[in-house]
C-alpha cells in the first residue's frame, strides 16, 4: 500500500505523534540521518473528490498538531511513496540541508496576510481612466504591505511578499513566543478602506524553505512562490 508522507522534523523524545491521520490511520514515524519523518498508509482505491477534501483537512490537522510542538518541513499533499526505502533515500540525500533548515526554523512560525482589493473598489471604465485607477490600487496594496511591515516592526523575524494583479500576499516569520502578541497587534491594525486583509497562521514556514543546492538533479521540488524581500513598488 502506498505511504503518504506528512512532514520532516527534528527527532525529539517529547514529540507526540498525532493519534489520527488521513483516512483515520494513525501516522507512524521513521528516523533516518538525524531526521524524523511522519507517514501513514494510504488506500488510494475508490477515492472521490469528497474523500480528497477530507483527506486534505486531516493532513492539515496532523501538520498543525506537529507544528504546535516543533518546527516541521511539510510535504505537499498528496506525496505518495511506494515504500519506506524511497523516503529513507530522500532523507539520506538531503539530511544536512533539512537539519540545518529545521534548526533555523525551530523557534519561528509563519503568518500570512492576503491583501485584496474590495469588489466595490475594483476599477471600472476603460482606457486611461481604468489604468489610472489600477495604478492607484496597486500603489494602495504596496503601501498597505509596507505599513504592516513597519507596524509589526521587530516582531517580524523575516518577511517576503508576492503580488498579482489584484492582491499582495505577505509572509512573515514570527517567534513562537511572540505569536499571541502579534495576533493581538493585528486586531488593532487599520487597513485602507479599498482593501480587504485576511491574516492566517501559524503555518509551517513553507515560504522560507530554500531548496537543496542539488534540487533539480534529485527530484525534489518546493512550492515557494516567487517572492521578494522588497516592498512592492
Amino acid at each position: 500500500m502506498p505511504l503518504l508522507a506528512y512532514c520532516i522534523a527534528e527527532p525529539g523524545s517529547n514529540i507526540e505523534v498525532p493519534l489520527r491521520g488521513v483516512q483515520g490511520v494513525p501516522p507512524s514515524t521513521i528516523i533516518e540521518s538525524g531526521l524524523i519523518c511522519f507517514l501513514s498508509e494510504y488506500e488510494p482505491s475508490g477515492v472521490n473528490s469528497t474523500h480528497v477534501r477530507e483527506a486534505a483537512l486531516a493532513f492539515n490537522r496532523v501538520l498543525q498538531e506537529l507544528l504546535g510542538q516543533t518546527a516541521i518541513v511539510p510535504f505537499r499533499f498528496p506525496t505518495l511513496l511506494g515504500d519506506e526505502a524511497e523516503i529513507r533515500t530522500f532523507l539520506q540525500h538531503h539530511a544536512a540541508h533539512y537539519r540545518d533548515l529545521l534548526g533555523r526554523l525551530r523557534d519561528v512560525v509563519q503568518i500570512e496576510i492576503n491583501l485584496t482589493i474590495n469588489k466595490s473598489s475594483q476599477p471600472s471604465g476603460s482606457g486611461r481612466e481604468y489604468l489610472l485607477a489600477r495604478q492607484h490600487l496597486n500603489r494602495t496594496l504596496a503601501d498597505a504591505a509596507t505599513l504592516i511591515r513597519r507596524y509589526l516592526g521587530a516582531q517580524i523575524r523575516d518577511w517576503r511578499q508576492s503580488q498579482s494583479s489584484s492582491a499582495t500576499r505577505c509572509y512573515m516569520l514570527v517567534s513562537r513566543d511572540d505569536l499571541k502578541s502579534t495576533f493581538e497587534k493585528f486586531r488593532e491594525l487599520k487597513i485602507a478602506s479599498e482593501l480587504q486583509a485576511r491574516v492566517t497562521g501559524p503555518w509551517p514556514a513553507t515560504d522560507f524553505i530554500a531548496l537543496p543546492p542539488d534540487e533539480h538533479e534529485n527530484s525534489l521540488q518546493s512550492s515557494a512562490p516567487p517572492v521578494t524581500t522588497k516592498p512592492y513598488a
Binding site: 511539510p74 505537499r76 499533499f77 506525496t79 503555518w203 515560504d207 518546493s222 512550492s223
Partner: peptide, 9 residues
C-alpha cells in the same frame, strides 16, 4: 497550503 506548499518527491 496543503496542495500548494511543501516539498515534493
Amino acid at each position: 497550503h496543503v496542495l500548494n506548499k511543501g516539498v515534493v518527491i
